[in-house]
Nucleic acid binder design. Structure first.
Length: 556
RNA sequence: GCGCCCGUAGCUCAGCGGAUAGAGCAAUUGACUACGGAUCAAUAGGCCGGGGGUUCAAAUCCCUCCGGGCGCACCA
């Protein structure tokens, strides 16, 4: 019996009791009110409900009395072994082994689909993350968003949402010119220009550009700058894409800012930015002042209005943001999620205002997630301090799995301090190995079982009576809710924490319950049934690791 | 000055208002002639930054103070 099924039965019984007690004036109870959860302490049963505590006040009843009334009814539910009322009015449910154990077969049958749920069905979500300027390599800050964003996309999809993961390429504006000028200077053997980009990678890019364009140094300045910028851009963006793919991070859409600036095909066709300003103006949140065009973002909680087109006719960055936002809606995404670093949190109000000015609901149509920055041994990352670590370096030290995992197991709003020496050691203090080993162990047990003639030809869940087995089954049952919760709260790290718990539970079970017979012992239904449980655990570990973008090895 | 995030074991961090606050690492001690010891069992380690409040119940919600990070452009 899955927790969802149990919850539904409890709900029915609870409503039955309430109607019996209060007739037509009985309060309506929903699944959320049942509040079914795994108690920390196993002495409190397999599942626990605080329903009576929640209802006692509005009914003016004593919580323990109410709990006892519910308990009486709950005892009749099939598959329930016992019901206890404890503490201030908790209702503790213990399932009989057969009802609890049946889940093992369900999981094996569902395979890769187990854990998927429909809580976000029908939602169309545009999820933007990383979006680093294509003027240099990705560093550890971007890497954190890459890991979290990609896992978030997977968790959202697993919960039924239709998701586009998107990378916004800031390929318009001064920074690109500074980037091109830096490459050109390096190609010419000159020092870095003012506002230019330092770094060894610029020199390397200059070399690569020269190979593609051998006559670069003979071109006149404008042409040379164009060539350096454009070729450098292509090469650098290619590097970024390759790094991300190696990191198991996939983007459905790579959106170029230049598209927003470009005029349409025909003569006089407005650019996406022009069109966006017109649309905002039509909504009544745009005004002209001091030769500039403004958006009244203060209508939506911003602390000052924002210029969208400067007095000199040049658009601000905000203009592209506006056009980009509208583009997301036009492409069919009702819900837009932005994953930004804390150094960008000043944008939250204006982005929300943008949604409002566009006629959307700032509270539901846009969501800005702010992630805290990574620091190295307490020092913040900066180019000046020389402690910027690139994605590629991290990957070569740790490997994709360990890196994805060590960044993905913390919530985005938690400040994260990393020790590069520790990262390079690849030691067991990264729990990814603990989880992966548990998975490898399930594979190994399955191999041994096959070699000993244990197969899945029988399944008698009432035999799964060891306390490590009921603990393991309880955790397996929670997986779909963990996935749904991770999606709903936008906290994919919950999947990692869950996987660690599950791995621990599995290791403890392995230690006490054998799948393959010992010595001359004959193969029995206990062995066969345990094989189902073993395989179910492997399935859930594999699914959980998959949501994190981490591999599930069969051997280590 | 204003705003957002954070403060939990020696370290790195979990903990959508619930019961005795947890994990990994580090420390100490045990367990392989039993599916791989990258494992398991046990011990030790905490005024959950301080102080008020709401609640049957607060690490969790509210207020306030302290400490740390980040941000407050006709830059991108």
């Amino acid at each position: 019996m899955t927790p969802a099924e149990l919850s539904a039965r409890l709900l029915m019984s609870a409503n039955h009791v309430l109607v019996a007690q209060h007739g037509d004036s009985a309060p309506t109870v929903t699944a959320a009110d049942v509040g079914l959860e795994r108690p920390r302490n196993r002495d409190h049963g397999d599942w626990s409900s605080n329903l009576a505590l929640k209802l006692a006040k509005q009914l003016g009843a004593n919580p323990r009395d109410l709990a006892n009334a519910f308990a009486e009814e709950f005892r009749g539910i099939e598959g329930v072994a016992s019901i206890d009322v404890a503490g201030p009015g908790f209702i503790n449910v213990t399932l009989d082994a057969a009802a609890a154990g049946a889940l093992a077969k369900t999981i094996v049958d569902e395979g890769t689909h187990y854990g998927a749920n429909k809580t976000l069905a029908g939602q169309t979500i545009n999820l933007e993350f990383v979006s680093a300027n294509p003027t240099g390599p990705l560093h550890i800050g971007h890497t954190r968003w890459a890991a979290l964003g990609d896992s978030l996309a997977r968790v959202l999809r697993a919960s039924g949402a239709e998701v586009a993961s998107e990378y916004y390429i800031n390929d318009a504006g001064n920074q690109m010119d500074n980037f091109g000028a830096s490459i050109l200077a390096a190609a010419r053997g000159l020092p870095i220009p003012e506002n230019g980009y330092p770094g060894e990678y610029i020199t390397q890019l200059a070399g690569a550009v020269l190979e593609l364009q051998p006559d670069l140094l003979e071109l006149v300045d404008d042409a040379a700058l164009d060539a350096a910028r454009e070729l450098g851009y292509t090469l650098q963006l290619g590097e970024i894409r390759a790094s991300l793919e190696r990191f198991n991070v996939h983007f459905d859409v790579w959106f170029s800012e230049r598209e927003l600036h470009a005029a349409g095909d025909g003569e006089g066709t407005p650019s996406a930015i022009d069109a966006a300003i017109d649309r905002l103006r039509a909504q009544g949140h745009v005004y002209d002042e001091d030769d500039a065009i403004w958006v009244r973002t203060t209508d939506f909680g911003d602390d000052k209005d924002r210029v969208i087109r400067r007095g000199n006719g040049i658009f601000t960055y905000f203009a592209a943001d506006a056009a980009y936002y509208l583009s997301k809606g036009d492409r069919g995404y009702a819900h837009k999620i932005y994953l930004l670093g804390a150094d960008h949190h000043g944008y939250v109000h204006r982005l929300r205002a943008l949604a409002g000015a566009a006629g959307d609901d700032p509270d539901t149509d846009i969501e800005v997630l702010i992630g805290q920055l990574v620091s190295i041994n307490g020092a913040k990352l900066s180019k000046r301090a020389g402690n910027i670590i690139e994605l590629n370096d991290l990957q070569s030290w740790l490997g994709t799995d360990a890196l994805r995992y060590s960044l993905g197991r913390y919530p985005a709003d938690s400040p994260l301090t990393l020790d590069p020496e520790l990262l390079q050691k690849r030691t067991n203090d990264n729990p990814v190995f603990y989880v992966q080993y548990a998975h490898a162990r399930t594979s190994n047990v399955a191999r041994n079982a096959a070699a000993s003639g244990v197969d899945r030809s029988a399944f008698d869940p009432s035999l799964l009576s060891d306390e490590t087995e009921s603990a393991l089954l309880g955790l397996l049952a929670e997986f779909p809710r963990i996935v749904a919760q991770s999606a709903e709260l936008r906290e994919p790290h919950r999947v990692a924490r869950y996987a660690e718990q599950l791995a621990g539970s599995y290791h403890r079970w392995y230690d006490t319950c054998r799948v393959t017979p010992l010595g001359d012992e004959e193969v029995g239904d206990l062995h066969r049934t345990r094989l189902w449980l073993n395989d179910a655990t492997g399935t859930v570990l594999r699914n959980a690791l998959g949501l994190l973008g981490v591999s599930a090895p069969e051997r280590m």
